[in-house]
Computed example of a mutant assay.
Amino acid sequence: MSSSPNLLDSATAQLNSWTGQRRKVPIQLGSMFSQVFKTHTEAEAETLFIGGTEKTTPTLATVSDSPVQPWLFTRVLTVFGLTIAILAGSLFIFNGEKMYNGLIFMSALAVPFSLLIMFFEINTFRNISIFKVTKIFMVGGVASVLTTMGLYQFVNIQNMTIVAAILVAIIEETGKLVIIAYYVKRTQARFILNGLLIGAAIGAGFAAFETAGYAQDYGLWVLLLRAIDSLGTHTMWGAISGAALVMVKGAHPLAANTFQDGRFVRFFALAVSLHALWDMPLPLPSLLKSGILIAVAWVIVLVLINAGLREIRELREGKLT
């Protein structure tokens, strides 16, 4: 019983050292998601959604560095759930065949887009609007799939072996990184929480469009499986890469040496490794392997969120430019 906390503390301390602080990061999911179970008004939701415009972006002095407590994403997930239930009822009870494609797409969107809203809430700078986030999710998501397809032209993968899993992970995470870098440069993102959001948007778009494609090949049952898997796959991997990229870049222009920085390389390698392990035919029960990898992805993201909040405090104190 005592070894688990020590292992977790050691892991968060090591990860946190890559962000510039040598101390453990407490993992307090109960506190983080405590607002989920409280009553919130539509006005509160609208206040969150209008952030990020020219007139609603707060100054650094008013940006909160308190522990994040997202809640709106669960309401978005509830709306998706209700919509999916209606579509499924129309399809299976009334034989509404025209609802089939709608059911696929809404099911593919549900978890990735809801997770994206969570990262939108976590970006306490409130400097990227929901309109921009949605554009990055849609256009960036499709572009990352297209980039990945282009990279796949250089390899020939027939069966999912260990080597093939590594190649797939490198190709797909690189494909997403190309588009993440484009939007980091385009939006002039300079804060870790910005990078976390942009990376999550690209990853969520990739996940949604990929899942819709799988459903066409394997049927509706795969939608539930991939919805659960989405809790710790492309959205989280993209968030890790995006946060690491902006953490290294800071307020400077994006340059080639940004991608060579050891801090970025370590976190990007983690994203690639998680992806590769997810696809590898390992001698572990599928549910156990997925659970472990989802948990690890969340720990990494929580450490990066902590680094993002610390960045706010350091900017206020003048420790960063």
Rank of each mutant, 00 (worst) to 15 (best):
A297R: 05
Q69V: 06
L197H: 04
L224K: 14
A276L: 10
N6H: 07
L224I: 15
L293F: 00
G219I: 15
A208H: 13
N101R: 05
A269R: 08
S2P: 11
T134I: 07
R310A: 15
F33D: 01
F191G: 12
A201T: 10
G89T: 00
I128R: 09
I128A: 09
A215Q: 12
K289Y: 05
T39N: 15
R263F: 08
E46H: 09
V265E: 01
I192V: 05
N101T: 07
M99I: 13
I122L: 00
V248W: 00
I292C: 15
F49V: 05
L245E: 04
E44C: 01
A11P: 01
D279L: 11
T53V: 02
I166Q: 14
F268R: 11
A88E: 06
Q216C: 07
A271D: 15
K132C: 14
A164D: 10
G141W: 00
D217R: 11
T161F: 00
G232S: 03
A276R: 00
L293A: 02
Q28H: 08
G52E: 02
F125A: 13
K132I: 06
V303W: 06
H252N: 05
P26L: 08
F209C: 01
I179A: 10
A269H: 10
S3D: 14
G262L: 07
V68F: 12
L223C: 09
A143C: 04
A85G: 01
S4Q: 06
D65K: 09
K289T: 03
R310L: 08
Q69H: 09
W18E: 13
L220H: 14
I130W: 15
V301E: 15
G262Y: 05
